[in-house]
Design a protein around this nucleic acid. Structure first.
Lengths: 229, 229
DNA sequence: ATTGCCGGATTGTTCCACAATCCCCTAGCC
DNA sequence: GGCTAGGGGATTGTGGAACAATCCGGCAAT
């Protein structure tokens, strides 16, 4: 019966326009994750509505979307604020991150080949950025890399949860002064992990991943407590 | 310095009133997860706003909250609809569920004793409901039980992700005609899993959990394809 | 039978009004 | 002096109306 136009259905998202609330949320998301809106900043409905030329209602819907992604917190009768991460948050993020990425590693053998290719691509991007000395780009590629690792599970819900975590992680990265010091030690370990994945050594990959995330969490937590004791 | 009143902070949620949007979302959530609002039902802004005596603005904010929990889908210019789960969704839910509950099992040794007690309590509730022949209550207790298993990880983010999954799972359960046939085979296996957890056999618990979820997914998917082919 | 088009109905968005709440500041008190 | 109480201004919470944008079903024309 059907099935002839299934290939077109994949491009459905390119047809549907986004609502104003979604577009506003997207703009704010960028500003927050890139550190242009400092954590703790209060997002005034009136001021933001004027700046973005949208009504308060639309803005409030956008806030709900951002709160879903944990990038802002909504305090009743007080307004919405750019999320301020504390060390507990970072620890918790890494707990969930371990669960999601482990799910990806474990699905390695049943993962489609293009998913593993995505891991390779992200790693190559990180190396290229390192060669240029662009450590912020290394951070971006690093997050893409780990998103791809979780993506090995082939699960839309895991992908989305991981995407939210990644956005939140950027908040944590922004709290660390030196992107170089933050990412340099882990770049090599990304390569190690990728090697284990390529050769299908699931158990070893899982062990390495666990240690990797433990160490990364410790580095960020330490940096956070140092800069803001 | 601080810390004296930390115990009070846990009850903070009892003080803060909820916004109208949150209360509306809560009411709708109950109706959806209990099957009183059939999947696919269109939620008209005008009709619902009148029924609940809230403005369209407030209702739209509530819809955003429900969409966050995946209980409704929002189609631009068409409205919001109660989520219709397909077998792919169910399979994906179980993929994420496995990741979250596995994280709980793995954290068993470092879990606080009261978390394990929560697992015991939920299991006892399920057995009590079985004794009464109330299979819907068994289903509720079963979900609480698995929420508690994931809760062993002690991670707020895992707890929240699991809570969302549980709400979505209720949609799947509602699609299965016989609650008895659905839950009866798994009640005993919940006891098996609890026994392994009590005795600290993490690896065996993980294997049992994996098989459990595989089987449960298969049962639901089969029931879904039978009732709606 | 397919396409083109129209009109009703619903959502998307804005604007405005007012109540509810919070926050800061000042005055008063011990 | 420090603490408490209370007032006033600013901001959010919520409702309501209006109009634009969009979708959907049906009718007409080919």
């Amino acid at each position: 019966m059907a099935g002839v136009f299934d290939a077109l259905a994949a491009d459905r998202s390119r047809i549907e326009r986004a609502s104003a609330a979604q577009r506003v949320a997207e703009v704010l998301r960028e500003h927050i994750t890139e550190g242009r809106l400092a954590p703790g900043t209060r997002l005034s409905e009136e001021a933001l509505g004027e700046a973005l030329a949208v009504s308060r209602n639309t803005l409030r819907e956008a806030f709900r979307l951002l709160a879903d992604q944990r990038l802002v917190v909504h305090e009743l009768n007080r307004g919405v604020f750019v999320k301020v991460l504390n060390p507990q948050d970072v620890a918790d993020i890494y707990t969930l991150r371990l669960a999601l990425e482990t799910a990806g590693v474990r699905a390695l053998h049943s993962a489609a080949t293009e998913r593993l290719a995505a891991v390779r691509t992200a790693l190559a991007r990180a190396e290229a950025a390192e060669a240029l000395g662009d450590w912020v780009a290394v951070g971006t590629a690093d997050l893409h890399y780990h998103q791809a690792v979780a993506g090995l599970a082939g699960s839309p819900r895991i992908d989305e949860a991981m995407a939210h975590l990644v956005a939140e992680l950027r908040l944590a990265f922004a709290a660390v002064p030196s992107a170089h010091a933050l990412h340099e030690p882990f770049l090599r370990r990304n390569q190690t992990l990728a090697g284990l994945l390529e050769s299908g050594e699931i158990d070893d990959a899982e062990v390495e991943l666990t240690r990797y995330l433990d160490d990364a969490r410790a580095v960020i937590v330490r940096a956070m407590t140092e800069t803001r004791p």
